[in-house]
Design a protein around this nucleic acid. Sequence first.
DNA 1: GTCTATATGTGGATAGAC
DNA 2: GTCTATCCACATATAGAC
Lengths: 214, 214
Amino acid sequence: MSGDDNEAAAVRTTAPGRRDILEAAATAFTRGGYTATTIDDIAREMGATKGRVYHYYRAKADVFLDIVTTGMQELIDGVQPIAGNTDLDPATRLWRMAHHHAGLMMTRNSFQRVAMRAVEMRRLGEAPAQQQALETVVAMRDRYEQLFADVIDEGRQAGVFRDVDSRLATKPLLGALNWISLWYDPQRGDYNTRQRVADEYADFILGGLRRSPR
Amino acid sequence: MSGDDNEAAAVRTTAPGRRDILEAAATAFTRGGYTATTIDDIAREMGATKGRVYHYYRAKADVFLDIVTTGMQELIDGVQPIAGNTDLDPATRLWRMAHHHAGLMMTRNSFQRVAMRAVEMRRLGEAPAQQQALETVVAMRDRYEQLFADVIDEGRQAGVFRDVDSRLATKPLLGALNWISLWYDPQRGDYNTRQRVADEYADFILGGLRRSPR
DNA sequence: GTCTATATGTGGATAGAC
DNA sequence: GTCTATCCACATATAGAC
């Protein structure tokens, strides 16, 4: 199998001032994690000082949450249309969903890596508003997982997938895919490498779910 | 498939004083990450104050590194014997390796979750000794990955696995498995749940690599 | 061996000049 | 809109009592 292209994606609805900050912050957070990254790090990343950052954002947590929701939204925007395309059989849909997700882990590496870490955080700070924002992100993640679970159920009922607990089955699937953001180095990979990786992952996942492996 | 038991594992060669600290610190780091966790958090976790921690460890980074190397060593100790057991065919060996790894992600959740995060850290601090220790851990991880790559190559040459790049193939495999440490809640799972999860993961992975999926 | 100070550095956030 | 200067809270690590 092969195909599906998301290299052009990267929706940008954010205002230019904030956008620069988000890009710089995503890079900085990728290097050091949330607490280890300072506002000075973020500012230095874009050749400015923290006055600039605080002009657009009230707190460090707000910058972080903006990156995370952006990352999650990019996943949903890309994958939901594939999941809902009933012209395609479940196996093909799942293959393309996995392929697209894999692609975003590489082309939007910094945002996705930061987003990935956010859902494993229980608390972000004391501010209840930020806590609520974090829970919104977790809710987005849950809905996103359900997209995969639904397609798996469909394929299971159609007899092409094994008889798995669809909700449990999303764990190795998305775990494998999300892991890409940790080892993939955006500096080194080119278009062909990314396609090869995404193909391999999509094949691996379909194989893992297909009925009667022998 | 079913079987293989690592519930009894958890090797303890560490001195009792340090052991308590390691357990408490692993729990604390699991909650908040490296920078977010304070020495006071660790001390409070075991009902003490930081004087106790600093009596056994010179620095926070040293506590962290001790957890990480312990976690990595537990993986190697459990999986290497399976990988080297040439009485078994490659597919069975890989199934059991994956199953055992999955088990450790759950039974030794805090240590494994901390260890997992360490390898994605580029730098730990300024001290060159600690930096070197971190690189030792990364080297352990590389050797560990190679155990899986070798078995995959064997199975590929034997014709039971697809024609994959074995080194690339370890990525979705170990990514899926390591991810368990993020979503599994040690408070809620019992023995049967863990077995079921490990079985599902091992099946998934074998399916993903097996030749002629249809 | 474990505790309570405390010295010291650093980072989030604000005020206000330009 | 972007900067510098500064306040203040907190965390690592040490000193020294018990």
